[in-house]
């Protein structure tokens, strides 16, 4: 066991735990944001540099601070290590820099991007970015590529997190999905656009933190925040069968894997479940998915309504009698009795 202190909070974790996972065990705001790390994918992480932290004390044995910021997702804790994340102004500055770099060549076409609303880059930029960009040159552009008949690759939006490459490598058979070229013209490729007909290829869509890999069966059907996520399962011979159905009215618009609070897929699902089973009768419904309150998907969402009502009540009690306030969208729900 190793004792590590992150932003002044001490926790004891098993040896070999990364700083990031130790921070996740503590939870809350001090967890560094991640874009490329995915706990289910081996050797992922280290590329995006958003999870940089400062190690102000190396360990009990060797208390020297580390000379440079380290990627918390790929650095293991040592006993007695002290880490600064939110407490270090340099780290916040560096992270804002990374956000700016990631957005420099990102098209910012969120209004027409299917990922908008469940996009890790959007969230990262809201929380850590600056208001405006200083990048004034033409952004790089790529042609859209079809990867098989179900997935579209739009490289222009890609932030080269390598998650899909690792997925293709580790989940699917045969290596057909890699990176071509180098530097800022690197692109995810499938080696002359070989169709990926592996049963689990659809998971690449789920691991993509941005809108670079999208589900062609869902493209432009709906904004994600107009759909309602419901957890469901079926007895699938190929995969765990634990999925999330995205409803609009009675219709299942798409099926995805279940993501946890860090945007990581919990169980890989097969393409049959993802593309072929779009009727409610195919599934055993478990109930509404847990959606974090700060997610835009939770706007108009029934599950968060209770919490929202409680918050509104609390706020109202604190306000002078008769004082009118502007409420969030949830308050406008017809089921809301207040």
């Amino acid at each position: 066991m190793a004792k590590v202190t992150i932003d002044g909070i001490t926790i004891e974790v098993p040896d070999g735990t990364t700083i990031l996972n130790a921070a996740r065990m503590i939870g809350g705001d001090i967890v560094p944001p991640t874009m490329c790390y995915h706990s289910k994918l081996k050797t992922s992480g280290g590329y995006c540099r958003t999870c940089l932290v400062k190690v102000s004390k190396g360990s009990e044995k060797d208390p020297r601070p580390m000379p440079k910021p380290v990627a918390s997702c790929r650095t293991n804790v040592m006993d007695g290590m002290e880490v600064e994340n939110l407490l270090s102004p340099e780290i916040l500055e560096a992270r804002a820099g990374v956000v700016e770099f990631l957005l420099a060549n990102h098209p910012l076409d969120c209004p027409v991007c299917d990922q908008a609303g469940e996009c890790d880059l959007q969230n990262l930029a809201y929380e850590n970015g600056k208001v405006a960009t200083r990048y004034e040159f033409q952004k790089r552009e790529f042609e859209k590529i079809d990867i098989g008949d179900k997935i579209q690759l739009h490289m222009t939006r890609c932030i080269l997190c390598y998650r899909c490459v690792k997925t293709a490598d580790q989940i699917t058979d045969g290596r057909v999905h890699g990176v071509l070229n180098r530097g800022d013209v690197s692109e995810i490729s499938t080696y002359i656009q070989n169709a990926i007909d592996n049963d689990f290829s659809g998971n690449m869509i789920d691991v993509c933190p941005v809108g670079a890999l999208t589900d062609k069966t869902f493209r432009f059907k709906s904004r994600v925040w107009y759909t309602k996520p419901v957890d469901a399962h079926r007895d699938c011979p190929k995969c765990s069968g634990k999925v999330r159905l995205w409803y609009k009215g009675e219709e299942v618009l798409r099926v995805t894997g279940r993501k946890d609070q860090y945007g990581e897929v919990q169980d890989w699902i097969c393409n049959d479940c993802r593309y072929e089973k779009k009727n409610t009768s195919d599934w055993v419904i478990e109930g509404p998915s847990h959606v974090l309150r700060d997610s835009v998907i939770s706007a108009n969402h029934y599950e968060s309504l209770k919490a929202l009502k409680a918050t509104i009540d609390r706020q109202r009690k604190g306000l002078p009698h008769g004082h009118k306030t502007t409420l969030g969208h949830g308050a406008l729900d017809p089921n809301n009795t207040h």
């Binding site: 770099f101 990631l102 080269l160 530097g183 800022d184 013209v185 690197s186």
Partner: peptide
């Protein structure tokens, strides 16, 4: 010559 693996170098050098 940037390999394009990590974001500060990939985007920053060109910028």
């Amino acid at each position: 010559e940037s390999c394009g693996q990590c974001s500060p170098c990939r985007e920053g050098t060109g910028w």
